[in-house]
Design a protein around this nucleic acid. Structure first.
Length: 322
DNA sequence: ACCTGTCAAGTCTGG
DNA sequence: CCAGACTTGACAGGT
């Protein structure tokens, strides 16, 4: 099995390269009051810098043979806030988006976004659903501006339980049908650490033909005693036809006190046993490392795993396993 | 240069 | 009904 590793949004090795500069509503308003247009100017500069740094990060990745990467969701500050309604950031920043997209295509990179937990397809509140739709549209627009095809994905969770998981699940299915096709074809679903187990998400993914990202830390936090080996072939099968290898997320618990929190690094034992299992069912796998030490944690994990008997390190961010 | 409370957004729990 | 947790990097205002 070939395994490729990636990390989330920012590097701890590449300095001064934040892709997540933001502008607060308060400072936007203060600036606009003092000098109309200066708030938008600050937002524009932050967005330009975030895109610039995202490209720098991709180059850092390619230089280190990393091909899997998740963009920051904060590339465009206040993008969907009413204060900036009507600002056409795509048109204005199009050359930068295109440059990023070109680089991704030239180097065969696998990129994604993970819209954060305010994006809830199954909320019973109309305003939350509308805001979620707007946020998904926003993320989708960014990938379209980069001129990337449907292999560039949006990873989200199913949403809340709302006191009745079955009803909430049904509402997800209903609202799924209301999503524009261009958004639907990019979404992949991930099991979460509190409500929707891997088995829940798999069932949904099978019904609606959605690829599933398995988070093995979340699986450890939230399961009903299922045997992962039994779920795995079906989870991997959800990727058939997507033109992408299956993907998983890995992280380690911060402490026994706070088992859900992410540790600075990943304990290789947390991944190794999974890989021996996964190798029986998939020839290729992409692993997104979610650790506070970001790319450093990813590199260390790959090196740690290379010490196991069945593992061959094939690059700084990739492994081969028999 | 460094420190600390605060920040758009939702849901859930517990008081 | 409301405060706090969740989770998290960066802002903003202070020293």
């Amino acid at each position: 099995m070939r395994i490729r590793f990636g990390y989330v949004a920012m590097s701890v090795l590449l300095k001064n390269a934040s892709p997540s500069r933001t502008v607060t509503v308060r400072s936007f308003n203060t600036l606009e009051e003092k000098n109309p247009g200066s708030g938008l100017y600050k937002v524009r500069k932050a967005a330009e810098e975030n895109l610039e740094n995202s490209l720098r990060l991709l180059k850092h990745n390619v230089g280190n043979s990393i091909v899997v990467y998740r963009f920051s969701s904060k590339l465009i500050p206040l993008a969907t806030h009413p204060l900036l309604a009507g600002w056409d950031y795509v048109a204005e920043l199009l050359p930068r988006f295109k440059a990023i997209g070109e680089y991704i295509k030239d180097h065969g990179l696998r990129v994604s976004f993970h819209p954060d937990h305010f994006t809830l397809i199954n909320s019973p509140r109309e305003e939350v659903w509308q805001a979620s739709l707007a946020d998904l549209d926003h993320h989708c627009l960014l990938l379209e501006a980069m001129q990337l095809d449907r292999r560039a994905k949006l990873v989200i969770h199913v949403g809340g339980g709302y006191q009745n998981k079955e009803t909430a699940r049904a509402r997800f299915c209903d609202n799924w049908q209301l999503l524009p096709d261009r958004i639907r074809k990019r979404i992949v679903l991930e099991n979460d650490d509190r409500v929707y187990t891997a088995a829940d998400v798999l069932r949904l993914c099978q019904e609606l033909h959605i690829p599933m990202v398995l988070d093995i830390h979340h699986f450890a936090c939230n399961n009903e005693g299922e045997n992962l080996g039994q779920l795995l072939p079906a989870i991997f099968a959800t990727w058939e036809g997507s033109d992408l290898p299956p993907k998983i997320h890995v992280s380690s618990p911060k402490s026994t006190d706070q088992p859900r929190h992410h540790h600075d690094f990943v304990n290789p034992d947390d991944l190794y046993s999974f890989l021996t299992l996964a190798g029986q069912f998939a020839p290729e796998l992409d692993v997104m490392v979610e650790a506070k030490q970001k790319d450093l944690a990813m590199f260390r994990l790959v090196q740690d795993l290379a010490r196991y008997p069945a593992v061959i390190q094939s690059g700084p961010a990739s492994l081969l396993m028999e």
